[in-house]
Design a protein around this nucleic acid. Structure first.
Length: 300
DNA sequence: ACGGGCCGATCGTACACGTC
DNA sequence: GACGTGTACGATCGGCCCGT
């Protein structure tokens, strides 16, 4: 007994004749006839009486049909579920991101994604640094991560979505605010708010000033762009932050200027290397790339 | 471990024929 | 004519073996 024979049996019960059952299953009438015959031989009792060239279900046939119907209801559920998953009408996506991307940037993408796929549920977690994002993605605790590139970890597959310049943040009314761009040499002797040590970004900023021979007065160190902006707005000093992916209230009270020489920062989507992304994850990653191209194109 | 070839089982169609 | 059964034959698939 096999599934194909059961399928043919059900089709004959539903359609009434072997010919129509064949049409239902998109096979020929003899094929159905043989499947029914094979099934009867396998179970060793007859499912149909052959009366005047017609198949009439026996009592045993009717009993078996009730059981088959129960099983096919379950099959229909599976088919529905498969279709729903394929069409992204169901699904879950867990994301871990650094603050600059989790705030202001990702909410817009999530909103756009949920317009297209309203029944997908999303969990967004914010962590302070890209190494933590990498760790959580590598251990497959989250489906997708967003952080700063490069990521040199064999357990991670990275897909860049943005390459943009860092910005200099000045307090309103600062002497450098009138300049179209701020040069490293302009910041000689300025009070400075620095991003926390250990990050790729901090290393690049310090390296740039060192090569330019510029000495700053490092006043405060912070881990978030938001805190740096707030402190610049409060007149504590000047800061250099990574590219912005949104404008928030605080940034209206500061002045943003390009930095010379430019410090490029690349952001990327991170996946676990040994676990292929689900359809939901893939679609979300594609949307991040499209959204960034549209609203925050790469700097040259 | 992987790919290719062989072989048997299974499933399909086409056709002939019987029954109503 | 409509429908069902039986048979011949071809296509496909999966298991097995063997070579790389």
């Amino acid at each position: 007994m096999n599934l194909r024979q059961i399928e043919a049996f059900r089709a004959v019960m539903v359609a009434g004749t072997v010919t129509q059952a064949g049409a239902m299953l998109h096979i020929s009438q003899p094929a159905v006839s043989r499947l029914i015959g094979d099934l009867e031989r396998a179970i060793r009792f007859t499912l149909f009486d052959r009366r005047r060239g017609r198949l009439v279900p026996t009592t045993e046939g009717k009993s078996l049909f009730r059981e088959v119907e129960k099983a096919f209801v379950g099959m229909d559920h599976i088919a529905d579920a498969a279709q729903a998953i394929g069409a992204l009408r169901r699904g879950h996506l867990s994301i871990v991101a650094i603050p600059i991307l989790a705030h202001g940037f990702l909410p817009h993408i999530i909103a756009e994604f949920l317009k297209r796929y309203p029944d997908v549920s999303i969990h967004l977690e914010t962590v302070q640094s890209t190494p933590t994002v990498v760790e959580w993605i590598a251990s497959q605790q989250y489906d997708l991560g967003l952080g700063v590139l490069p990521v040199e970890d064999p357990a991670i597959t990275a897909r860049p979505f943005s390459r943009r310049k860092a910005l200099c943040i000045l307090p309103a009314g600062h002497r450098l605010a009138s300049k179209p761009a701020v040069h490293a040499a302009d910041l000689e002797g300025e009070y400075f708010i620095s991003m926390q040590k250990g990050s790729v970004f901090r290393f690049r900023v310090d390296d740039m000033f060192e090569k330019a021979g510029v000495r700053r007065k490092l006043r405060v160190e912070t881990s978030t762009r938001q805190a740096a902006c707030d402190m610049v707005a409060a007149g504590i000093g000047i800061a250099i932050v990574g590219p912005l992916f949104a404008r928030d209230v605080t940034e209206r009270h500061v002045i943003l200027r390009p930095l010379e020489p430019a410090i490029f920062l690349e952001h990327g989507v991170l996946f676990p290397a040994f676990n292929p992304p689900s359809l939901v994850t893939e679609r979300f990653a594609e949307l991040i790339v499209k959204y960034t191209d549209r609203h925050f194109p790469n700097d040259r």
